[in-house]
Every structure is written in C-alpha cells, then in structure tokens.
C-alpha cells in the first residue's frame, strides 16, 4: 500500500486567556499544511485565534490498563485539599 498522509492532532485556543484545547485531527504531509488544514477545518465559525498541531505519533499516552495504579493512589491523600483542615469560623476567610 502507498504511504499514508500522516495524522495530526489539532488544538485551538478560543481566545486569549484560555488554554489550547484538543478539537480533533487532520491529515497533512507536513506541519505547515497541517496548520492550514486545521484552520480550514476547525476555525470556520470563529472558533479560535491560535492553533497548535502535533503529529499524532508524537503523543505518548498513559495506559488505561494501568489506570488504577496510576490514578487511584491519590484518592486517599485528602490532606491535599483545604477542607481537610479545621479552622474556627471566627478566624474568617482563609
């Protein structure tokens, strides 16, 4: 089979002050064409003012099979949350 046109993940920032957010993907031979494609596909209705494209192959993802050991140990570390600590109401907002 012929070589396939690579896949890119597209991230758009809706406006200044917000983070770029994943919106989908495009196929393009290189980064410049990927940016053009992302613009033409994902910003047709004024969805953003900045685009990132990243080769899909460059993304390393955590393994859902290891999700328990990766994410569960954090569940009982409740001392990381402000409500863990008792402060008398008289002290006021803290």
């Amino acid at each position: 089979m012929k070589e396939e046109t690579p896949l890119w993940e597209v991230f758009i920032r809706p406006r200044n002050g917000l983070a770029h957010r994943h919106v989908g993907s495009v196929h393009a031979a290189d980064a410049v064409l990927a940016l053009d494609a992302a613009r033409d596909v994902y910003t047709r209705r004024g969805e953003g003012n900045s685009i990132w494209v990243v080769p899909s192959a460059a993304i390393t993802a955590s393994d859902p099979a290891h999700a328990d050991e990766t994410f569960d140990p954090t569940a009982d570390k409740i001392y990381r949350h402000p409500t863990f600590y008792d402060i008398p109401e008289d002290v006021g907002h803290m």
Binding site: T5, V26, H27, A28, L33, A37, D40, V41, R44
Partner: peptide
C-alpha cells in the same frame, strides 16, 4: 485530492 483540500478550496 485530499479531504482537507475540499474544505480549503471551498473556503
């Protein structure tokens, strides 16, 4: 030639 260009040409 590629779907992305269908959108680009229409734009």
């Amino acid at each position: 030639p590629i779907l992305e260009e269908d959108l680009a040409l229409t734009n």
